[in-house]
């Protein structure tokens, strides 16, 4: 088993809009180790979502190699990619993306049913354990529409982790939450990362969220401009916020 769970080498991703080619990633290389809890940071349009999509096997690179759990995703069929997502990846979305008609319990159970590996009793045990771990077990029979944003994201985390994936990807998981709830969600993710050793890769704008990461990958204009410790990243973020802020008006 390779030590690096994710390995990106010289990846270019271009979007084609009619005849215009929009470069989203321009030659990116990154290695992520098992069990890391890393954040991808960068201004809007810098390519954070694009990178997560490539790692998440929901999109393919224009050039370069993306290896996830030792598999070169460029060589896999659509069907194999789907299977890879099911077995080794978990997703947490900005807008939670729960299935509206299913209960909390059924939403979390869904990936296990897709996998069809566990028997009924084991499945139930696993789902209930995770619901308890994210603190939502009392709402198992509720519909997503009956929950608050923070509660929904907890359900989404449980769903992402229920198959015990190697990697969990989260694109701005706190953007639709107030900052206190957002920090609680990141704390929860960090807790699960430490307990289960699951690799977490999440993108964020928010430096309060960023500071929980082991390390921060900084993107700008489709390029990685550095991988640094969370503290340094937060300093960076604060600095650029100060730089960008309009000069205080003299009064």
């Amino acid at each position: 088993m390779p030590n690096n769970i994710v390995s990106i080498r010289d990846v270019v991703k271009e979007y084609r809009l009619d005849k215009v080619v929009v470069p989203a990633l321009r030659g990116v290389s990154l290695e992520v180790e098992r069990g890391e809890f890393i954040s991808i940071a960068g201004p809007s349009g810098s390519g954070k979502t694009t990178m997560l999509n490539l790692i998440g096997c929901v999109d393919t690179a224009t050039r370069g190699v993306v290896e996830v759990a030792g598999q070169n995703t460029g060589t896999l069929s659509e069907r194999q990619l789907t299977q890879l997502r099911l077995d080794t990846l978990g997703f947490i979305f900005q807008s939670f993306n729960l299935v509206a008609v299913l209960t909390v319990y059924q939403n979390v159970e869904l990936p296990l049913l897709l996998q069809n590996k566990l028997g009924g009793a084991e499945r139930k045990k696993r789902v209930m354990e995770l619901l308890a771990a994210v603190g939502i077990d009392t709402h198992a029979k509720h519909r997503p529409s009956e929950l608050s944003g923070g509660q929904r994201q907890r359900v989404a985390i449980a769903r992402a982790l229920v198959t015990e994936p190697s990697i969990v990807l989260a694109d701005e998981p706190t953007a639709n939450l107030d900052s206190a709830t957002g920090e609680a969600i990141i704390d929860l993710m960090k807790d699960l990362n430490q307990k289960k050793g699951t690799t977490f890769i999440f993108s964020t704008h928010d430096h309060r969220v960023m500071k929980h990461a082991d390390s921060v990958v900084r993107l700008a204009d489709g390029k990685i401009i550095g991988k640094e410790s969370a503290d340094a990243a937060v300093q960076h973020a604060l600095q650029s916020a100060v730089d960008k802020a309009p000069a205080p008006a003299a009064s």
Binding site: D87, L89, R159
Partner: peptide, 16 residues
């Protein structure tokens, strides 16, 4: 659309 995309992302195959 987004729900279907989600199902596909979390590992539901096209035939399903």
């Amino acid at each position: 659309t987004r729900e279907i995309g989600t199902l596909r992302a979390i590992g539901m195959q096209r035939p399903m």
